[in-house]
Design a protein around this nucleic acid. Structure first.
Lengths: 139, 139
DNA sequence: CCAGGTTACTTGAGTGGCTCATGGATCTGT
DNA sequence: ACAGATCCATGAGCCACTCAAGTAACCTGG
């Protein structure tokens, strides 16, 4: 009944593929890469150390060094030694950075568009299904 | 009721993030990058020209040249001039390539794991929701 | 039949993301 | 005060990706 019925596997793949592509496009409207946009996003919650960013982004510390260097060069973040422990660098987002971040958020309209096609009930269903897929048990 | 209720936006993000990471890990078990694994996957359906691959993978033709070159160097694909039109190169997967591709498929167990946590009804629900999010109308 | 345009791919240069190995600076426990 | 741990930076290297040029093969009109 539901078309020649694309297998669910394929549907998931396509969904993820489209989501990724949309995020990439959104980041690019602000002249950012996806990784840079993610980093900025983390910083909107408040300042972080390099190490915290590395664990949050699941990547090497030296990778963060480069990402931050590029963002710093564009004035989107600042990097200052921590007063208490001068080994650690505290990275913060600048007003310009917040501006770009907002631009990305706005350009990333795909999730909102998709969710708008669902009723409130359907959204709850989806939320429940996603939660159930995620956790093995936790009831 | 459902925890402090993660917003649906965030749930989608986390889902996609986990999916991507799982695919990357799966590809790496076969010593492949995600892009290489995708390319191999396309070839399992039959031989393609370089151009066809480029449009399928949504990337530049010259990118495909390099991807194929690396895969060819490892004996996972072959690249031969088309008999009818010697400008086009027909890329095919080799038995070794099929082997690696199978390894990736097997290692990419996340979707199956996740779907196993859903009942048959829930899977149908999910499929319906995904389809509805995707298409603007088409009933 | 052959000149010129088009098509299909390759090459080269450049950007970025990512990793690993190494090293320097700073902190901490003894 | 010294050894070892911690935090970050640097450098080399791989890969994905893009754009601009180049080359070879095909096709079409005069």
């Amino acid at each position: 009944m539901t078309e020649p019925s694309t297998p669910l596997d394929q549907q998931l793949w396509d969904f993820v593929y489209g989501y990724d592509a949309a995020y990439d496009r959104a980041a690019q409207t602000a002249g950012l890469s996806a990784a840079q946009a993610c980093l900025l996003d983390r910083l909107t919650a408040g300042t972080s150390s390099m190490g915290e960013l590395a664990t949050a982004l699941l990547c090497d510390a030296s990778n963060v060094t480069q990402l931050v260097a590029r963002l710093e060069a564009r004035g989107l973040v600042t990097r200052e030694p921590d007063a208490a422990d001068r080994r650690v660098k505290r990275v913060s987002i600048t007003p310009a950075g917040r501006h770009e971040h907002r631009a990305v958020r706005q350009a990333f309209d795909l999730p909102a568009e998709m969710l708008d096609r669902l009723s409130a009930e359907e959204q709850q269903q989806l939320s429940r299904l996603l939660a159930k897929m995620r956790a093995p048990s936790t009831s």
